[in-house]
Amino acid sequence: MNTVITELSGKGIPIRGNEIDTDRIIPARFMKCVTFAGLGAYAFYDERYNDNGTPKNHVFDRSEYEGHSILAVNKNFGCGSSREHAPQALKDYGIKAIIGESFAEIFAGNCTALGIPAVQLSEQDIHEVQAAIEQNPSLELRIDLSEKMLQAGDTAYPIHLPDAFRNSFLDGTWDSTALLLSGKKEIERVYASLPYLAFNTASV
């Protein structure tokens, strides 16, 4: 029912810096929406635009990165607020995968639920890949989840992502909404076995 994701190809967009939090990816004032559609326009808004709305020449608006789909980031990307608006904004902008040194836990989980692999490279490797993209923005990147590697031009780098996430891409079960629409009986059995069901459902 779901799409199996074994590999993704595209060109990169480097965003340098550690601890880029979800408030920076999408400031809270853009969270007054009631669907996720169209959030891409606000991704990194305060870093892309001046107060008067003129662009600051952020990588998201530079012509050499136009249409690119693999974001290359550093350490603890997506920390802070659990807002799914952050990966949704990146997805709406056109990001299909993120490579980086490390990711915040909730952010990585949200990305997986949207079918966006967030894969880790060593600190040295990600710096090298970012520099390579900056030097040659049209560098072709290919993330191979089954072989656990990133091909950047002629160079291959080992990648890491938790087995559970990797398996969910490889077997197409990453869409948890669809996945968990099945299995009702088992859920009820566990509920019935809980030792404190009485207060679990008691009104308070």
Binding site: F36, S82, R83, E84, H85, P87, Q88, I106, G109, N110, A113, L114, S176, T177, L180, L181, K184, I187
Partner: peptide
């Protein structure tokens, strides 16, 4: 959690 996980929690 994110909104997708929340949605599953609400429904299931």
């Amino acid at each position: 959690v994110g909104t997708t996980d929340l949605e599953v929690g609400i429904l299931k």
